[in-house]
């Protein structure tokens, strides 16, 4: 089964994307989309030997909700900073943060979350000492930032992926 469908989730997602692009759910489109997705998932299996495993799918929704809330909050914060312009003191800075998360898929998700949130950007991950360099627009307390990211995302991602 897993030889025939190396990445079942990817196959389903690609078929769904095909149907959305075609804007129809006819049998022909489903079959064609499935063939494309099937081929793509096999190509993916050849390209990437490491296969991410989602252990707690229920937590993904919780993570999604937290990320959405956070993005709303930081949208407002960054809008304020931009509109304040030169009247505000420059508080941007780099943070070097140690991570417990080692799983590549988990790291990829974490980096996307941090970069997609306005006000923080993931710059560089160092596998040797398992730390990451983050640039923050509104850096007041470095420890607080590390705490927030660890508590909010890393613990969830650790549970989901490791």
């Amino acid at each position: 089964m897993s030889r025939l469908f190396p990445h079942p989730l990817l196959t389903v997602a690609l078929t769904l994307m095909w149907l959305l692009l075609q804007q129809s759910a006819g049998l022909g489109h489903i079959l064609l989309g499935f063939v494309v997705a099937f081929a793509a998932s096999h190509a993916m299996a050849r390209l990437q030997p490491h296969k991410p495993r989602i252990r707690r799918p229920g937590l993904v929704l919780k993570l999604l909700a937290e990320v959405t809330l956070d993005i709303i909050r930081s949208n407002i914060a960054v809008t304020r900073i931009v509109l304040a312009g030169e009247r505000r003191k420059a508080t941007a800075g780099f943070i070097k943060m140690p991570l417990e998360l080692r799983d590549p898929a988990g790291l990829a998700v974490l980096s996307c979350i941090i970069t997609a949130t306005p006000g923080s950007a993931w710059l560089e991950y160092s596998p040797a000492e398992s730390s990451v360099l983050i640039h923050v627009l509104d850096l007041i307390d470095e420890g607080e930032w590390i705490d927030t990211i660890k508590r909010r995302y890393e613990t969830l991602l650790l549970e989901i992926f490791q």
């Binding site: 960054v78 931009v82 970069t115 997609a116 306005p118 640039h135």
Partner: peptide
Amino acid sequence: GLARMPSFYQRIHAPTLGTS
């Protein structure tokens, strides 16, 4: 924000407003 921020690493935060 992209036009106003003084350094590149600060500017990189600005476009995420538009994309989020």
